[in-house]
């Protein structure tokens, strides 16, 4: 199966690979995995005082589509608020990367990673959902 140009681009030049300090109170860490294919994804976000994501890093073990999906979302979420990034849907990711149906689960993994990172950060900061404007 051929990868799209966008997948190849992210796969060959992944953006924002690495780690942030998971003990930093302004850092949220999301870890998710796909049992069917064994992919593991770690996504970390760092927010500033106004609740805007100023940095994002990822580490993914998996196929090209999983790496591209996580690389792409780190680009998308920087500069956005937590509420804004919660609106990112796996279908947006799949569409942007032109993922074939068998690779849709990679985009689901990336969407779930964002949700997990945001949930971790909110739990850390003691923010209740309704208080995040």
């Amino acid at each position: 199966m051929a990868y799209s140009d966008k997948v190849l681009d992210h796969y060959e030049n992944p953006r924002n690979v690495g780690s942030l300090d998971k003990n930093d109170p302004t850092v949220g860490t999301g870890m998710v995995g796909a049992p069917a294919c064994g992919d593991v994804m770690k996504l970390q976000i760092k927010v500033n005082e106004s609740g805007i994501i100023e940095d994002a890093k990822f580490k993914t073990y998996g196929c090209g589509s999983a790496i591209a999906s996580s690389s792409l979302v780190t680009e998308w979420i920087k500069g956005k608020s937590l509420d804004q990034v919660m609106e990112i849907k796996n279908s947006d990711i799949a569409e942007e990367l032109a993922l074939p149906p068998v690779k849709i689960h990679c985009s689901v993994l990336a969407e779930d990673a964002i949700r997990a990172a945001v949930a971790d950060l909110k739990a850390k900061q003691g923010i209740k959902d309704e208080q995040v404007a």
Binding site: M31, A34, P35, H105
Partner: peptide, 10 residues
């Protein structure tokens, strides 16, 4: 269902 296709929360 063991949800191996769609359950990503481990």
């Amino acid at each position: 269902d063991t949800e191996e296709e769609n359950n990503t929360a481990m």
